[in-house]
Amino acid sequence: MLTPLRNAYYLSFPVVLGAVLSNRMAVRLSDVVPVHWATPIVLALVVWMIYTIDRLLDVQKAAPASSTRLLTPRHAFHRQHATDLWRGILAAALLVLVLCFFLPGSVIRFGLVLGAVCVGYVFIVFRLPTRHSALLLKEPLVAVLFSAGVWGSVWVQRPTVSGVELTESLMFMAIAFQNLVLFSVMEQWENPAQPPFSLATAWGIDRCMTLLGWLTLGVVLTGLTLCFITSDRFAQRAALMLAIMSLVLYVIQRFPAYFLRNERYRWLGDGVFWLPALVL
C-alpha cells in the first residue's frame, strides 16, 4: 500500500518539492518584480536530475549487480530501474531545454554556470576513489549548490538583494548542511560495520554531533535576531520558520533510536524543506 509513496521517496520527490517550496519563500522575501513562471519548474527538474544522476553513478561505481543486497534500499531501487531513470533524465533535460527559451537571460546565464559546477562535481565524485579525502567536501558543497539553486535563481531576477535576504539564505544553507551531516551520522549508526565515507566517518560521531548543535544554535539565534531588526512581517515569519526547520533536525539528532526505525530520519529530514509552505 505504501509502494507509491516509498517510490516517490526513492525518486527524491520530497527533496524536489522542498526545493520548490523553499524557492517560493525566497520569492516572497524579494518582491520587486514577479519571478518568471518557468523558474520553479526548471529548478524542480534540475534538482531531480542531479540527485538521480548522482545515485545512478553511485550504484554504477559501487559494485557488480550480484552485490545488490549490499546497497541501501534507495540505491538498489536506482540500480533496478536504471534504464527507465536514464530515459527520464533525458526527457527532463529536453523539457528544461525547451523551457530555457522562456526564461530571462539572467536566469539562463546563472543556470549555465551553476549547471557546469554541478556537472563538474558529479564527474569528479564519480572519478575519485571511494575513500578519497576530497569526498569530505561533499556535504558542504552540496549544501552550497542546493542553496544557490533555490536562492540564486530568484536573485538574478532582482536589481538588488537585501541584507535580510542574504542572512536568511545563509540560514537556509546552514540547515541544508545540517541535514546532510545529520544524515551522515545516522547512516553510520544505521550501518556501523560498513558506513559510507563521509564527515561522520572522518571526524567521528561526537564531533559531528557538536557541530550539529552549534549549527542549530546559530540558526535559531539568527532567526530570533532578525525578528527584532526587520519590520517586514513576512521576513520575520520566514526567519522563525527557518529556526523551526533547524530545531526539527535537532530533534532527530537527539532521538536517533526512534528515527532510525524505517528510515524515519530521512522522511522527516527531507520533509523539513516542506515547512516553508506554512508561511507562504
Rank of each mutant, 00 (worst) to 15 (best):
M1H: 14
L2M: 15
L2V: 09
L5H: 07
Y10D: 07
P14R: 09
V15T: 11
V16F: 02
L17C: 07
L21I: 14
M25F: 13
A26I: 05
V27N: 04
L29S: 03
S30A: 13
D31N: 07
V33I: 08
V35Q: 05
V35C: 04
T39Y: 04
T39E: 08
P40Y: 02
I41C: 11
I41S: 09
I41H: 05
I41R: 08
V46K: 05
W48P: 03
Y51K: 14
D54C: 13
D54A: 14
D54P: 14
L56V: 11
L56K: 15
L56Y: 09
L57H: 13
L57G: 12
Q60K: 12
K61H: 14
A62F: 13
A63M: 15
A65L: 10
T72S: 13
R74I: 00
A76K: 10
A82Q: 09
A82T: 10
D84L: 14
L90G: 10
A92P: 13
V96F: 06
P104F: 06
P104T: 09
V107K: 05
L112V: 13
L112A: 09
V113E: 04
A116E: 06
V117L: 10
V117R: 05
V117A: 11
Y121V: 05
Y121E: 03
V122S: 10
F126S: 06
L128F: 07
P129D: 03
T130D: 13
R131G: 00
S133N: 07
L135S: 06
E139Q: 03
V142S: 01
A143W: 04
V144I: 04
Q157Y: 11
S162G: 15
E168M: 14
F172G: 01
M173C: 05
I175R: 09
A176E: 03
L182N: 08
E187Y: 08
W189M: 11
W189E: 00
A193Y: 01
A193E: 04
S198H: 03
C208E: 00
M209T: 09
G218Y: 06
V220F: 13
V220C: 12
T222N: 12
S231V: 12
A235H: 02
L240K: 10
M241N: 12
I244F: 03
L247N: 01
V248G: 04
I252K: 06
I252R: 06
Q253G: 12
F255R: 15
R264N: 02
R264A: 00
Y265M: 07
R266K: 11
R266T: 13
W267T: 13
G271K: 05
G271W: 02
G271Y: 02
P276K: 09
P276Y: 10
A277D: 02
L280D: 08
